Amino acid sequence: MNKKIIIIVVMLLIIISSLALYTSTLKTNSGNQTQITDMLGRDVQVPINVSRVASFSNSVTVMLYMLAPNKLIGWDSNRSATQNKYMDTQYQTLPVLGGGKKDANYETFISMNPDVVFVGHGTTVNDVNDMQEKLGVIPLLDVEGDNNLTNIDDSITFIGKIVGEEKKASNLVSFHQKMLSEVTSKTASIPESEKKRVYYARDSTGLMTNPSGSSHTQLIDICGGINVADVPVTKGTVGVSIEQVLKWNPDIMIVSDLTFYQNVYSDPLWQNVKAVQDKQVYLVPNSPFNWFENPPGANTILGIPWTAKVLYPDKFSDMDLKNLTQEFYSSFYYYNLTDDELNSIITSSGLKL
C-alpha cells in the first residue's frame, strides 16, 4: 500500500508540475501581447514588440515607411524607377505584396508573416472584421484620417505608437503643424477676390482632375487657393473638356504628369488658358512620393510649403523651401539630398531658387 501511495503521490506531483509549467507558458505568451483599440474602436491583441508591418492602403504604407522603414516588409503596389530615384536601394527592393483592401492578395500577406497589418480610411467595422477573418491570426488595425491633412496627426501618432516610434511620429506631427501655421497665418487674410484660381491636371491629357472638396486637392484649399473644378465630389478623378478648362481659365495649373508638363506650353489646345499664357504651370515632385496627392497623406506635408510658394511666391519669399526639403527628406525619407539633387527637385517643378 505504501508503494502505491508513493506512486500516486509522484504522479500527482508530475501532473501538478506540468500544469504549473503550462500555466507559466500561457502567462508568458499573454505577456508578449497587448490590447490595442484601433481607430474604428475595435479591440485587437497585438505583439508588444512589433518588428514586421505591412499595409493594404497606399497612404498608410507611406506613413509606415516614414516612421519605421526597417519594419516595413513590402509595398502594397508597384513603384516606378522615377519614384525610387530618391530612395535607398534597400527599400526599393522590398517585395510588392498587393494591397487594395477587400481585393488584397491575402495569401502573400500571410506568407510574409507580419506582426501587424494596417488598413486605411474608408472601411466599415464589418469590412475590417471580414478582412481580419481572411488574415487569420495576424492582427489587423484600422487607421482613420490617413488621407486627410486636416486630421492626419492622430493617425501618425497612432501608427507611431504601434511600431514603437513615438518620437519620430511626434517630430512628423510637429513639422506638419509648423507648416500649417506658417502658411495659414499668411493666407487667411487674402480676400476672396484676390485668391489664385487653380486647376489640377492629373494625367497625360491634362483633362482628368479632382474636384474641390476632394482629399486629392486639399493643398489648394489649405494654401489659400480656389480649386476651379467646381464639379460634384467623387472618390476618384473626373474627366473634363478643354472647353470647360477655358471657361474656368485658371491663374495657375498644377500638374502631376511629366509628359503633359513638357508639352503644355507648345500644345495648341492649351494656348488660350491663362495659366499657360502666363507661364504658371507647375509640376508636382513625386520621388520618393508625390508632394501633392497620389496618395493624399503624410507625403503631402512637404507639399504645403511648395504649394504655398507656387500660389503666392511674394507672400512666401522668406520661406526656405530648400532647407525644408532637405530636413524632410533626411528625417522622414532617410535620404540625404545633394545640392544638385535638391536644386533639381525644386527647379524641375517650375519654381525658381
Rank of each mutant, 00 (worst) to 15 (best):
D88K: 14
N336H: 12
S330H: 13
T23G: 10
R42M: 13
I254Q: 00
T123Q: 13
M131E: 13
V116H: 01
K274C: 05
N126E: 15
P268S: 08
L94V: 11
V9P: 08
F175A: 10
M319S: 08
A308G: 07
P139V: 09
M131C: 09
P285C: 10
L141T: 02
Q132T: 10
L324P: 02
T37F: 04
E341K: 12
L337W: 06
E243Y: 08
P295T: 02
F260G: 01
V273W: 03
T307Y: 00
K161F: 01
E327W: 06
E243R: 10
V240D: 05
M66F: 08
T184V: 11
F158H: 00
F292W: 07
M66C: 05
G41N: 11
L19T: 08
L19V: 12
S111K: 14
V276R: 02
Y333R: 07
V44C: 09
Y333I: 04
L64H: 03
V137H: 12
L149D: 02
G350F: 07
L219D: 01
S193Y: 09
I16K: 12
C223I: 04
G224Y: 03
V264D: 03
V128K: 02
L149V: 00
Y334S: 12
N126D: 15
V281L: 13
D278W: 07
A169C: 12
L219N: 01
L351W: 08
D130W: 04
L219S: 01
M1P: 08
A20M: 14
P285L: 12
A308E: 02
S155C: 06
D339L: 09
P211D: 02
N32R: 15
Y312Q: 09
F175L: 13
W248T: 05
I5C: 08
N49I: 14
T124E: 11
P191W: 09
S331V: 06
S51A: 13
E341Q: 15
D130N: 15
A68P: 02
W306K: 00
Q326E: 12
T205Q: 10
I242Y: 11
T82E: 14
V163T: 03
N272I: 08
N299L: 07
L337S: 11
F292R: 03
V228S: 04
L283V: 06
T23K: 13
T325G: 06
V228T: 14
T259M: 11
P139H: 12
I220T: 03
I7K: 14
G225P: 06
D221W: 00
S256R: 08
R197N: 07
L94E: 10
V125D: 09
